[in-house]
Each structure stands twice: as structure tokens, then as C-alpha cells.
Computed example of a mutant assay.
Amino acid sequence: MKKTGIYSGSFNPIHIGHLAIANWICEYTDTEEVWFLVSPRNPLKEAGELMEEKLRLAMVEAAIGDYPKFSVSDIEFSLPRPSYTIDTLRTLRSTYPDRSFQLIIGSDSWAQIDRWKQYDELIREFPLLIYPRKDYPIEIPEGCPTVRGVDAPLLEISSTHIRQALRAGKDIRFFLPEPVRPFLIEQLRLPE
């Protein structure tokens, strides 16, 4: 059974931090591939400046290109909203019985896992890989054998910072995969 990591997020926009973490997970854990699952909207976050979901999907597709260990999924676009991780993972498991799905989350998300729908069932049913985020140590309590921290690099790049920097006229080309820049220039109405 192929071990597939699910890296879910709004990717508003996708940036090199997302790609670096996914790449590290493919190369330094037993995860064989990573699917970037574009979420229409996280029920625990404000909608704020969320770009249109199909645009975010197109940016992720452009960012990963033809890298064989990465794929993109829009499965939540067709699920009831708001979408919840447990429901999405169960749908993936029934749709792709030849894969073993693992959820990839940051330690900041792990710190609030008890706010997630049916989080105890999620932890029981699916392995979780937790990568480090600043100010959120990875603490895994006893009785969570499916949960493990990974020693991925600590990357402090945020989509919010990227949008703000672009609007302020900053040249942050090395924070973004090059194929994503044209999408943002048009979406944020920026000069080229």
C-alpha cells in the first residue's frame, strides 16, 4: 500500500515553505508521495483575503509542475461545506483503497487539534506527521501511537506575509515558486 501524505491548506498562495516541507517529508520519512489538498475554507479560520478556490488550485498545480512525488487534490471542492479533515480523509480512504493516508500538519495546528471535528477518531484512524512551527513545541501525549513529530526544517514563511509584501511593492520572488508569481500579479493587481 502506497504511503500518501495529505498536506491540506488554503495555499493562499502556495509558497516555497509549503514545497520545502513536503519535499522533506518525501525524502526523510517513509511517506512516498504528498498530495496538496486545497481546502475551499478552513472552518477554524476567518475567510479574510481568501482567493477564489480554483485560482488557488491552479497556483498549486503550477507550483508543483511535473515533480513525480507531488500531486494536487480538489476533493474538498465536491464535499459538503464546511469541510472537515476527518470526513475528507475517510472519503479519500474509501476512494483510494490502495493508499495509506497520513495527515501532515504543523505543530501550531497540532496545538489546537482538540478543536477539530472528531479529533480523537482522526488520531485513531490516521497517522499524523507533525512538522515544527515557531513557538509551538511538538508535544505528543501518551496514548497517541499514530502521531509522530518530524525533524523537518523550521521555515517561517506565511502566505499572509507574501500577500502583504507584494502589495507593499517588495520583491520577494524567492519566497514563491516562479510559476505562481504571474497568478498573484494579476490577482492582487500588481505592476509586473
Score class of each variant (00 low, 15 high):
Gly48Ser: 12
Lys170Asp: 09
Arg41Ile: 05
Leu55Lys: 10
Thr91Phe: 14
Asp98Ile: 13
Leu57His: 14
Arg56Gly: 04
Gln164His: 13
Asn42Pro: 04
Glu32Arg: 05
Glu61Tyr: 07
Trp35Thr: 15
Glu156Val: 09
Cys26Asn: 09
Tyr84Gln: 13
Ala58Ser: 11
Arg56Asn: 09
Trp110Asp: 06
Phe36Pro: 04
Thr29Tyr: 05
Met59Trp: 02
Trp24Glu: 09
Ile21Met: 00
Ile64Ala: 01
Glu27Thr: 08
Leu155Glu: 04
Glu76Pro: 10
Leu129Glu: 08
Asp30Ser: 14
Gly169Ser: 01
Thr29Asn: 03
Pro40Lys: 04
Asp30Met: 10
Thr88Gly: 11
Lys45Arg: 13
Lys170Glu: 08
Glu61Arg: 06
Glu156Ser: 07
Thr146Pro: 02
Arg133Phe: 14
Glu32His: 07
Arg181Leu: 13
Ile105Phe: 13
Glu121Asp: 12
Cys144Ser: 10
Leu19Lys: 06
Trp110Lys: 08
Gly149Asp: 06
Arg173His: 15
Ala62Glu: 01
Pro80Lys: 13
Gly17Ile: 11
Glu142Ile: 04
Gln112Tyr: 12
Arg81Phe: 07
Pro97Asp: 01
Glu121Lys: 09
Gly48Phe: 11
Arg167Asp: 02
Leu57Ala: 15
Gly106Leu: 02
Lys45Thr: 09
Leu79Tyr: 05
Arg41Ala: 08
Arg181Met: 11
Pro179His: 12
Val147Phe: 04
Thr85Met: 13
Gln112Ile: 12
Pro97Gly: 10
Arg181Asp: 14
Asn42Leu: 02
Pro43Tyr: 09
Ile16Asn: 14
Ser78Met: 13
Asp108Pro: 00
Pro137Met: 08
Lys69Asp: 08
Phe126Tyr: 10
Ser100Pro: 03
Ile123Pro: 03
Gln164Pro: 12
Ile138Gln: 08
Asp114Ser: 15
Ser78Pro: 01
Lys134Glu: 14
Tyr7Gln: 10
Leu89Asp: 05
Gln112Thr: 12
Gly5Pro: 03
Ala22Glu: 05
Arg181Lys: 15
Leu92Val: 15
Ile14Lys: 05
Thr31Gln: 07
Ser94Gln: 14
Leu79Thr: 11
Leu89Thr: 10
Gly169Asn: 09
Pro191Leu: 01
Ala152Leu: 08
Leu37Gln: 13
Glu52Met: 05
Glu32Ser: 09
Ile130Gln: 00
Pro43Cys: 04
Ser159Arg: 01
Asp87Leu: 14
His18Lys: 06
Leu188Ser: 02
Cys26Arg: 01
Trp35Phe: 14
Pro179Leu: 09
Asn23Gly: 07
Gln112Asn: 08
Leu57Phe: 15
Leu190Met: 08
Pro13Lys: 05
Gln187Val: 06
Val72Tyr: 08
Ile113Asn: 04
Asn42Glu: 06
Arg81His: 15
Lys69Ser: 07
Lys134Gly: 07
Ser73Ile: 11
Asp30Glu: 07
Ala47Met: 10
Phe174Val: 10
Asp151Glu: 11
Ser94Leu: 13
Gly106Ser: 00
Val72His: 02
Phe175Ala: 08
Arg173Gln: 15
Thr146His: 14
Val150Thr: 12
Ala22Gln: 02
Thr146Asp: 11
Ile75Phe: 14
Ile113Thr: 01
Gln102Tyr: 09
Tyr28Gly: 15
Thr146Glu: 11
Tyr119Cys: 07
Ile130Gly: 00
Leu103Pro: 05
